[in-house]
C-alpha cells in the first residue's frame, strides 16, 4: 500500500509508521482533528474474502477522503488508524471466520490524515452456506462510548507494545 502523501495532508501533522497483519508497512501522516459522523447516515462497504474493497456507498467514499476509483480494490486496512489495537482486528477476523457478526467502536483514518469514529457492524455474506464476501455498516456512536474506547484502546496498545 502506498505511503500517505504530504500533498494530501495539511500541516501540521505527525509522522508514524504502521505495520499490518501481513508484515507490510506504511508511512502515515496524522492530524489530531476529528471529522464528525454525518447525521442520519450509514457508512456501508463490502469487501471480498481477502479484505479488498469491492463496494462503498456515497457516505463511505465521502468520509474516507479518497476518490471512489482509488478505494475500489484497495485493502480495507487503508482506513486503519494506528490508535486502534491489533487485537480488535484479530477479534473481528476470527469472529467473521466463525460466520458470526462482529460489533465494535472503530477510529478510522482518512486520506487527509484526519479521523472519524464509528460504531461498526461487520457480517459475512453467506450464499448457499458459504461466505462469499463481507459487509460492514457503520453508524454514529455515542460520545461517551468513544471516550471509553479512547482510554481502553490506548491501554491495549501499550500492552501490545510490551509483549
Amino acid at each position: 500500500m502506498k505511503d500517505m502523501q504530504s500533498v494530501d495532508v495539511l500541516e501540521p501533522y505527525t509522522e508514524r509508521q504502521i505495520q499490518y497483519h501481513d508484515g507490510s508497512e506504511r508511512a502515515l501522516l496524522l492530524k489530531d482533528e476529528e471529522v464528525p459522523f454525518p447525521e442520519g447516515k450509514l457508512i456501508v462497504s463490502r469487501t471480498n474474502l481477502e479484505g479488498m474493497i469491492t463496494h462503498g456507498n456515497y457516505s463511505f467514499v465521502e468520509m474516507s477522503g479518497y476518490e471512489e476509483e482509488e478505494l475500489m480494490g484497495m485493502p480495507h486496512c487503508v482506513l486503519r488508524h494506528p490508535d486502534m489495537p491489533s487485537a480488535a482486528f484479530k477479534d473481528l477476523w476470527s469472529t467473521l471466520q466463525r460466520q458470526e457478526k462482529w460489533h465494535g467502536y472503530v477510529k478510522n483514518l482518512r486520506k487527509d490524515g484526519r479521523y472519524y469514529w464509528v460504531y461498526a457492524t461487520v457480517i459475512p455474506n453467506i450464499r448457499h452456506n458459504e461466505t462469499v464476501s463481507y459487509t460492514s455498516v457503520r453508524r454514529k456512536p455515542s460520545r461517551s462510548k468513544i471516550d471509553e474506547c479512547i482510554q481502553l484502546y490506548a491501554q491495549m496498545i501499550q500492552e501490545e507494545n510490551q509483549t
Binding site: 450509514l42 456501508v44 463490502r46 457478526k101 457492524t121 461487520v122 457480517i123 455474506n125 450464499r127 459487509t135 460492514s136 455498516v137 453508524r139
Partner: peptide, 11 residues
Amino acid sequence: AEFMIDLMDTL
C-alpha cells in the same frame, strides 16, 4: 435483495 438483507442484518 440479498445485499439489502445483509445490510438489515447488520442493524
